[in-house]
Design a protein around this nucleic acid. Structure first.
Lengths: 237, 237
DNA sequence: CAACCTATTTATAATAT
DNA sequence: TATATTATAAATAGGTT
């Protein structure tokens, strides 16, 4: 940007890269400070550089901490307001998860009661079941009975089923799904935990993003006076 | 910075301030991106501006989230390494707090047992006390007895006390401190909560810092390759 | 290395469209 | 109000000390 129009690419020469970094870091700091004073922006800058052994902060430690604390403090509240796309995205995921969870629970309950039903058929008692269990059990039995009647009707009408006419009981037995252990929600819970994790950590894998060499920088200007609806992505031409 | 050497002060004219902000924001973004590519810095920039209704992010939402997550993720670990002064400061405060808590607890226990002692003297039973209580109670009684004997000795030696020679019992009664209700740790707990709050929020009051108009900006460049011991505070000349 | 040069490129304040 | 222009201030690449 002087003496020669620099090509915008990684500077391979270590010393010149370092020199450039130092100069530009200084320039950036100045720019931030100017923007802050000129436009009344409450700003801070922290630069952990690979070359300095102590971070540079602007305007000072306290100021930076204040600004950072504002950021850290607002998370689930203001931050999400500003990340509406993120928020709605997560809401979708949560809604979907809840639905899946509900569905899964219902399915598991059914399986559980099916298991109980078969145990009952095998002669085990029903003494340990409470009212809710019995209710659900009766529902499951009803469902199975309906299935059986249906098949009987089909057979009565002279069906082309390959099974014998007395196939009802065997059919049901074949239909028996493997019973779940516990409530079978482990998978669901893990998934939820993952999502929560993702959410809290904004967890995007380094591979995905091509990051990970350990030098990172944040510039943030927090402003509370608006509701952001989208995060555009097309700055400087 | 052109056509006229701008004076570095808040631009009062609203429209020109906005114009300046937009231009400079763009410039800053460009600078960040240049620094990032030229020096291989993993950077991001987020600007919630008062003028745009959606934040500007660089390089993109994912990238910014990644960098921010790095920051959010490291807190008590890496971050504290870089904030040694803060850490040691807080350690001091915590140590001090713990000591005070201990002292306060002991004092409260003593008051509690004193209360019990007076209740016992007033005729109430000691059935509800456990071994520990009884132990502490006996200690408190011993202490009081010691005090009484001391005063008796002083009187025996022909003292100049204004009270009569049989003043032992009344003296003790006068010495009785108001008993605490509960464990009397409320004050301590509140203080601890405050400190914890301070710690978590990096809570520095807005008045102290002269901040608070709601427009904030962060620039951070994270680097893991060093151990910072101090946070210097002297950038650009 | 750091600090200082300066030829240039960039950024941008004021202005025009 | 946003964008384009342009004169000028500021930033800085490549040297030099």
């Amino acid at each position: 940007m002087t003496r020669k129009k620099v090509k915008l690419a990684y500077i391979t020469n270590d010393s010149s890269r370092k020199a450039t970094f130092k100069k530009r870091k200084k320039g950036l700091m100045k720019k931030v400070s100017e923007l802050s004073t000129l436009c009344g922006i409450d700003a801070c800058a922290i630069i952990y550089s690979p070359y300095d052994n102590s971070p540079e902060v602007w305007p000072n430690i306290m100021g930076a901490q204040h600004v950072l604390s504002e950021f850290k403090r607002m998370p689930e509240m203001e931050q999400s307001k500003k990340m509406v796309n993120q928020e709605s995205f997560m809401k979708q995921r949560i809604a979907k998860a809840s639905e899946q969870l509900k569905k899964q629970s219902k399915e598991n309950r059914e399986k559980e009661m099916t298991e109980v039903m078969y145990q009952a058929l095998a002669g085990k008692g029903l003494q340990n079941l409470n009212l809710g269990d019995l209710n659900d059990l009766s529902w499951v039995i009803d469902q199975n009975m309906k299935g059986i009647y249906k098949r009987i009707e089909a057979i009565k009408k002279g069906a082309s089923t390959s099974s014998s006419s007395a196939a009802a009981a065997p059919q049901v037995a074949a239909e028996r799904k493997p019973a779940v252990t516990g409530l079978g929600l482990e998978g669901m819970q893990r998934t939820q935990a993952e999502w929560f994790n993702d959410w809290m950590n904004n967890n995007t894998s380094e591979q995905q993003l091509g990051f990970g060499h350990g030098n990172e920088m944040i510039i943030t200007n927090f402003n509370n006076n608006h509701n952001a609806n989208v995060w555009p992505n097309d700055f400087f031409p």
